[in-house]
Amino acid sequence: MGELLDYVSAYNLMKKYGINSIESKYVKSADEAIKFSKGRPIVLKGITKKAIHKTKSGLLELDLLTSDQIKGAFLRLSKKAQKFKPYKILAQPMTKQGIEIIMGGKVDSQFGKMILLGLGGIYVETFKDFALRVCPITRYDAKKMLEQLKSKKVIAPDQKSEKMIEEVLLKISKLLVENNIQELDLNPLILHDGTYDAVDIRILK
């Protein structure tokens, strides 16, 4: 199986393809995290190869505003992450609330690179509402992927958001085709205020 790409490298790859991702930085200490926050509420995440599910593993601390909150969360995370060594702690500004979706990619042993769109976040496993296509996809394919979802109306309530999601899918398809990637998870990718941010990126080389 492939190797997990370093988070910040993955973040840079997203940037290269014009896929909005939330600002991300590794922090080695609580002080560094406080400095990163610049008064904004932030999120701290334990990054490790050994756990895909950050919420389940308790490697996620949300909505940290004051220095005390940040310091406490940093200590808690460091403690919990011990059993997933080696690990790093990533700081991100807190995202706006929105609809959580998943976009992803994988290499199928028969058909090669495939792209996925679905209802994301904690709903991924519960509803298994997703659409899959072989890369590269066309605009028509992107439209049909969205149409196929039961949660289409939730994810894309209007034409503008439909178009936005189609654009992102086309960018990801291009990224998958042009790079040596075994698996990709953008989960969640949060849709908010007419725009979006990939909040968690996982790439297996």
């Binding site: 895909i52 058909f111 495939m114 996925l116 298994k128 899959l132 072989v134 049909k144």
Partner: peptide, 24 residues
Amino acid sequence: ATAAHSHTASLAGSYESYSAVFRQ
């Protein structure tokens, strides 16, 4: 099936890929 490392791979198994190809 081998244990998946990502949500995408765990959702999109071999049958799902076939089904997607038929549709596409």
